[in-house]
């Protein structure tokens, strides 16, 4: 499988799987796809999410408490793949749950589930050789993060080994909503373009149509995570799928002002 962005800008939606529960996560995922998400990042909950802000920390804690495992997330991926064949599916995880399952077993199970790509928050290019070999064997695409603090030689290396798309972090920080898209973002995307023809998805702090419109000026896709996870937290399990669908549909609404960049 391979990731494709069918729309401009592309929309990547992050969900913490198992929050509030697995069945609701599935309904939310389907609603997100039907509302226009090109790619879903299926977040594997972890006890120690050190790259995440308070919203995803709380979601992760609830999902871990529910006993959501990597196997559960892969089973969900498999059923989404059957029902929505063309959506991009990314497993989004910290490294330890993958190590615990075993790199090879994980990659084999992810391929079988119809997953397209994998992104591991705390695995950088330097430490990724065995991981990339396992993914390659199972036709999974490795996605790496690029940060505003990454020097050019690192960006070149990240571009060289990434497939599907590159996830550019809009600002120096942890996940979570903010008022404006950081000025760091445009500079990072410009630097990254020198090394890659892959689509560049910009994430961290993107939470409304104005942000998405700004991102569309220079990146190929926007990643929306914490804003949706917060919406799920505030909604009942019953209402969450509809609320998320409406929210995502509104993200591509044209906005008058494009002055939201800081």
């Amino acid at each position: 499988m391979a990731i494709h962005f069918h729309n401009q800008p592309g929309l990547v939606v992050y969900l913490t799987i198992g929050d509030p529960d697995l069945a609701t996560s599935k309904r939310i995922a389907l609603a997100a796809i039907d509302a226009g998400a090109d790619v879903l990042e299926l977040g594997v909950p972890f006890s120690d999410p050190l790259a995440d802000g308070p919203v995803i920390q709380r979601a992760s804690e609830r999902a871990v408490h529910n006993g959501t495992s990597m196997e559960d997330v892969l089973a969900l991926a498999s059923s989404l793949r059957k029902e929505r064949p063309s959506v991009g599916l990314v497993i989004f995880s910290y490294l330890n749950p993958i190590l615990r399952m075993g790199m090879e077993s994980f990659a084999a199970a992810a391929e079988k589930a119809g997953v397209d790509a994998v992104l591991v928050t705390d695995l950088t290019v330097e430490e990724s050789e065995e991981y990339r070999a396992a993914l390659r064997k199972h036709r999974l695409q490795p996605i790496f993060l690029a940060a505003p603090t990454s020097p050019d030689d690192r960006l070149a290396r990240i571009a060289e080994v990434s497939e599907g798309f590159i996830y550019a972090i809009s600002r120096v920080g942890i996940t979570g909503a903010q008022q404006q898209v950081a000025g760091d973002a445009r500079e990072l995307v410009t630097r990254l373009r020198r090394y890659t023809k892959l689509p560049i998805a910009l994430g961290f702090g993107i939470s409304n149509a104005a942000h998405v419109a700004v991102v569309a000026e220079y990146a190929d896709a926007a990643v929306v995570g914490s804003a949706i996870v917060a919406l799920i937290e505030q909604s009942s399990a019953q209402e969450a799928p509809t609320a998320v669908g409406k929210f995502i549909a509104a993200l591509r609404t044209p906005v008058a002002s494009k002055s939201a960049v800081s």
Partner: peptide, 30 residues
């Protein structure tokens, strides 16, 4: 941070047999 040159990995050993290494979000690598 972007103008610092990458150190040779031989400067200080980062591995103790199989253990150690550097598993962090990309933002911290520099």
């Amino acid at each position: 941070e972007t103008v610092k040159e990458m150190p040779s990995s031989a400067t200080v050993p980062g591995r103790f047999d199989a253990y150690g290494g550097r598993y962090v979000p990309e933002t911290l690598m520099a």
